[in-house]
Amino acid sequence: MDHFFDEPRYEMEREISLLTGQLSVEAASRYRRKIINARDLELAAVRYTTAGRLRGEGFAVVHTPGRVRAECDAIGQHVSVIWPAEDPLNVQKIPWPPAVTKSFVECFNGYREDGR
């Protein structure tokens, strides 16, 4: 089973970090770590959504450049997903209520009601 953060970790962050574009597992892994090995790639996974889908569910999607990498141009840019969307630079409510977390998860590909 893939492990993704589905809400901010209360002690550590106020948003969920995502990358733009339909990156491959390897490309996404290389954004996070300079050196990766075959085992890293076996354990890695990606999931896809759109900024429009997230915004439609009440999240703000804010461009937050993060680390600048030469190989990242129009795709592979860092964004922060924040809830609620009304004033994301000044207000980030965490922990997210369970309904907000469920809504976030349902924005991604592969979601099915039965959880498989």
Rank of each mutant, 00 (worst) to 15 (best):
Phe5Thr: 15
Val81Asp: 02
Val62Thr: 04
His3Cys: 13
Gly58Asn: 03
Leu19Met: 12
Val105Ser: 08
Gly76Ile: 00
His78Leu: 01
Pro97Val: 00
Lys93Glu: 15
Thr20Pro: 05
Asp87His: 11
Asn90Ser: 07
Arg112Asp: 05
Val46Tyr: 08
Leu41Ala: 06
Leu54Asp: 08
Lys34Val: 13
Arg14Ile: 05
Pro98Glu: 03
Ala38Arg: 15
Arg14Val: 03
Arg33Cys: 11
Phe5Trp: 12
Glu26Ile: 02
Tyr10Glu: 15
Val91Leu: 08
Gly58Cys: 07
Leu89Arg: 11
Arg116Phe: 09
Val105Cys: 05
Thr64Gly: 07
Phe108Ala: 01
Ala28Val: 02
Asp114Thr: 02
Ala28Ser: 11
Arg47Val: 10
Gly115Met: 14
Arg14Gln: 11
Ala45Cys: 08
Arg53Phe: 01
Leu43Val: 04
Glu15Arg: 13
Gly76Phe: 00
Tyr48Phe: 13
Pro65Phe: 05
Phe104Leu: 04
Asp2Tyr: 06
Glu106Ala: 13
Ala74Asp: 14
Glu7Gln: 14
Trp83Met: 03
Ala28His: 06
Arg33Ser: 12
Glu86Val: 11
Lys102Phe: 07
Pro65Gln: 08
Ala70Asp: 13
Ala60Phe: 03
Arg55Lys: 14
Arg32Asp: 13
Glu13Cys: 08
Glu26Asn: 05
Val91Lys: 12
Phe5Ile: 09
Ile35Gly: 09
Leu19Thr: 00
Leu23Lys: 02
Arg39Ala: 12
Ala27Phe: 02
Ala74Lys: 14
Glu26Cys: 05
Leu23Met: 08
Phe104Cys: 02
Lys102Leu: 13
Asn37Gln: 05
Arg116Ser: 13
Arg14Tyr: 13
Ala74Trp: 14
Ala60Ile: 00
Arg112Ile: 02
Arg55Ala: 14
Pro95Tyr: 06
Glu71Gln: 12
Val46Phe: 06
Val105Gly: 08
Leu23Cys: 06
Cys107His: 00
Gly66Asp: 04
Thr101Asp: 01
Thr101Leu: 01
Gly110Ile: 04
Asp114Arg: 05
His3Asp: 15
Asn90Leu: 10
Val91Asn: 10
Ala28Lys: 00
Glu57Asn: 15
Arg33Pro: 00
Gly56Pro: 00
Leu41Cys: 04
Gly21Arg: 00
Glu13Asp: 07
Tyr10Val: 09
His3Thr: 12
Arg55Val: 14
Ile94Pro: 00
Gly115His: 02
Trp83Arg: 01
Ala74Ser: 12
Tyr10His: 11
Glu71Thr: 06
